[in-house]
């Protein structure tokens, strides 16, 4: 035990820095995922065929291929086509785009499961399509999709570990580095495991639960 504490204090800097990068990657990935999910999810419901097609292609590509391959593509192949992203940016954009594609299905499903009577009541009040969506449908869709988004957030957090493979200096990257220099695999990866778990279990999940409760209150259900 004392040797593990020694291990921790010796590598505190690396672990803290790595954790900070992981958190930053997580928050930024989540923002990208939410944005893309809402846009793509709504576009799949748009009356315009070309817009629908764009959204469908995006969803198909990012859901149908592996996140790791997508990371390599965006980090190694796009520069060959003239688009070079810093690895930090490439990391969260790719993770965000990947989970945004899954999220788009959640958005679409939630919007479709708002009862038809709500659309009709909004139309009877002569609301424009944009106001109908923003003021009436989306707030209710949000309440429907929050629970699955809670799982998604944990998946995004875990998914960010892959950015280590394009050398973003996140928690996973640092653990590998520590392992490489000390060969203390159990300690290095064990610590990473614990930190990921603690964040998922005691930060992300409670936050999402809190959001769900706040939402229920807004619907007058709490």
């Amino acid at each position: 035990m004392s040797s593990y504490l020694e291990f921790l204090s010796r590598h505190a800097d690396q672990l803290v820095n790595g954790t900070a990068i992981t958190l930053a990657q997580f928050v930024l990935s989540a923002l990208v995922a939410i944005t893309l999910a809402v846009i793509a999810g709504l576009l799949t419901l748009a009356p315009s065929r070309p817009l629908k097609a764009v959204a469908t292609v995006y969803i198909e590509i990012f859901r149908g291929t592996s996140l790791l391959v997508q990371l390599y593509w965006i980090y190694f192949v796009l520069p060959l086509m003239g688009l070079e992203l810093p690895k930090f940016v490439a990391g969260f954009v790719t993770v965000g785009a990947c989970f945004g594609a899954y999220g788009a299905e959640l958005v679409r499903g939630a919007v479709l499961s708002v009862p038809k009577g709500q659309w009709e009541a909004a139309l009877a009040l002569n609301m424009s399509p944009a106001k109908r969506m923003r003021r009436i449908i989306l707030p209710q869709a949000l309440a429907i999709m929050l629970p699955p988004w809670g799982n998604m957030m944990v998946e995004i957090l875990k998914g960010t570990a892959l950015v280590a493979l394009i050398s973003v200096a996140d928690l996973m990257f640092m653990s590998r580095q520590i392992n490489g220099t000390t060969y203390q695999s159990a300690q290095a990866f064990g610590t990473a495991l614990i930190i990921y778990y603690v964040f998922a279990r005691f930060l992300v999940t409670p936050l999402m639960r809190w959001l769900e409760r706040a939402m229920a209150r807004r619907l007058g259900r709490a």
Binding site: P115, Q118, E120, A121, L125, M127, G220
Partner: peptide
């Protein structure tokens, strides 16, 4: 009825006048 569940009775009645 199709009232908007995320709004109070008053907000339901204000939504159209304000937004439309």
């Amino acid at each position: 009825f199709n009232l908007f569940p995320h709004m109070t009775a008053l907000e339901n009645c204000m939504e159209g006048p304000v937004q439309v």
